[in-house]
Design a protein around this nucleic acid. Structure first.
Lengths: 336, 336
DNA sequence: CTTGGCACTCCCTGCGGTGGAGTGCCAGAC
DNA sequence: GTCTGGCACTCCACCGCAGGGAGTGCCAAG
């Protein structure tokens, strides 16, 4: 029985602290929330919660502030997210439905997400690993220069330039085109890599060069896991703790490698992952939390999207927004 | 004679203020710089400069601070930029020489520029208007779906998807390909637009659709004047005047339309343009300055690059860095 | 035109006092 | 055993105030 109330107290403290940005005391707590107990009781609970590491005091005789561990418990015990309001739902669908191509969908999503959460939003392009090859096109720019265009099922297009040792005539080009397409088109990236690898081994010369280049373009995931970031202006709201918090975050936002590590593995579509403060992989960002989820057509988590913000954030609202955007985005990918 | 000294005083004040970030007084000024006059004389000059609007006092009995007009005079009278040190030159060339393609060149440039100036750097992709068409490729994804790939002399590649009303067979495709290439390849964008326009009028059907799409892709400058931004972490150094200065700037950095207006027309290659405070087109950014220059092969200013920073910045060093990066970048485009 | 001197202004800093919000603990009530 | 009211205590945030210092403007003399 007391256990339950303690959770309620923790929850109330988190909510108040997030709203007011100030340490919250026992008296204000019972007044603002309908707790049917006296401040003294709450004080006892708070002392216990502090002993267990869920709360902290900036200094003696000040109110309590949640610790990372406190936020963690808050998030874990909180199964019911804030539902999106009707207006928000409408905003999401009208905002995303107007998109014309993949780039547009992604950039709209990132803007939408940052506006809904008032945090910095990050959206990863659908990763290559689970998409398939739709078409490979070879364009002869010159007899010995080839433009290799790779078109994927997600609508993504990669192009590479290839310098050939020996010139290639038109019929050879046509043959080569149908050869690589025959091997790779329709296959998963992972399978296409294998198929092209064996092709390169079997047929030295131009075919091998083209196949190698394609394998490289497909394998080199890291460099192609493109990210879009938006809503950095929301960082201006940090106010206090500036150089310590905002600077490393701004740096991380430009270093896509760091950002990818921060997003982590694409979690299952539908599950929202929350990484609080020092739980994340980047030490400099110990005062920021990351809320992510996977998205993709047919509930395949092709990629990750989410937000980055201060540990003191509105977790229910943020998690709900992240999930909602991911769902709409998945649905759009289903259709396209 | 006095006129000259006044300029020297203004210059000294600007230098000190930029270095210390604090209002500078007469005594400190004569000590730090080798002015062979007394503080009283300097005070008279300062009073005169204030009357003319070049200086301002935060409050009575405080030191002086340059106004926008003061910075303007400082920049105009300052023909000799700080030369780059040998180490800096080496850094620039090694940094840029490793680039493999246009994307890489641009992203390296932006990083380099932000590191050299410790400001936010912006680099615009070479604009379409003065580049020529290298090749147009048509790829049949399906009988009625065409991928149109436009390759420009700058190395830029644009692709568009086209849904056809009527399917197109292979020979028709080959014809169409050679038709549009015959008309457009080698031409300036502006000329290619005209040629394709007449082609579209003369030949209804698929040819017109393709030509229209190409014209649209070429004409629609705004949406294609891509920008890359880097070094936003340097904004963390703003410290004071935060919400008023950094927030609008962060917003502008994400709104590429605003940013393009900020960069302005590509100034002649070799000339560095400085826009100080309210001289710029965006009111919210009245406390930031923009330093830009044009770049491009053979001294054609294909595009603009530059930095955005507080009005209180090291103009000589910044201008020199901007010019140096633009030169190296132009040279690389010459070779490629 | 420059310079030294002088009175004046105003900000910044440090200091002590006060008020308030909050805590911890204890004894009593349920 | 748990909750509650009361009480003493702590400590921060705020305020007013004085002192020092950096800077200015002005004036008379070189």
């Amino acid at each position: 029985m007391q256990e339950e109330r303690r959770i309620a107290v923790l929850r109330a403290i988190v909510e108040d602290y997030v709203a007011t940005e100030e340490p919250v005391g026992s008296k204000a707590l019972v007044e603002r929330h309908g707790l049917n107990v006296s401040p003294a009781t709450v004080r006892n609970d708070m002392a216990a919660l502090e002993d267990e590491g869920y709360l902290a005091q900036p200094h003696t005789s000040a109110g309590r502030v949640p610790t990372d561990k406190g936020y963690r418990l808050f998030v874990d015990r909180l199964t019911n997210l804030k539902p999106m309001s009707g207006a928000e739902k409408r905003a999401i669908s009208t905002f995303l439905d107007g998109a014309v191509d993949l780039d547009d969908v992604v950039s709209r999503s990132v803007r939408l997400l940052s506006q809904l959460t008032r945090q910095v939003a990050v959206v990863q392009y659908p990763t290559l690993s689970r998409s398939t090859v739709r078409h490979i096109e070879l364009v002869a720019l010159a007899p010995d220069r080839l433009l290799v265009v790779l078109i994927l099922s997600t609508g993504r297009v990669e192009q590479r330039l290839l310098e050939l040792d020996t010139p290639l005539d038109d019929t050879a080009l046509v043959d080569l085109r149908s050869l690589v397409n025959g091997v790779a088109t329709g296959e998963l990236i992972s399978e296409a890599i294998v198929a092209l690898g064996t092709l390169a081994a079997a047929r030295p010369g131009p075919a091998a060069s083209v196949a190698d280049l394609l394998v490289e373009a497909m394998s080199d995931h890291r460099s192609h896991e493109r990210l879009v970031v938006g809503g950095a202006a929301n960082l201006a709201r940090y106010g206090d703790s500036f150089d310590s918090a905002v600077r490393p975050l701004l740096e991380a936002l430009e270093e896509h490698v760091v950002l990818l590590r921060l997003l982590g593995e694409a979690s299952q579509s539908g599950t929202v992952t929350v990484r609080i403060g020092a739980e994340g992989p980047v030490q400099e960002l110990s005062s920021t939390s990351v809320v992510t989820t996977g998205y993709g057509p047919h509930d395949n988590a092709l990629a990750t999207l989410g937000i980055v913000g201060p540990t003191r954030m509105d977790y229910p609202g943020t998690m709900a927004a992240v999930r909602a955007v991911a769902r709409y985005l998945s649905r759009i990918l289903d259709e396209g």
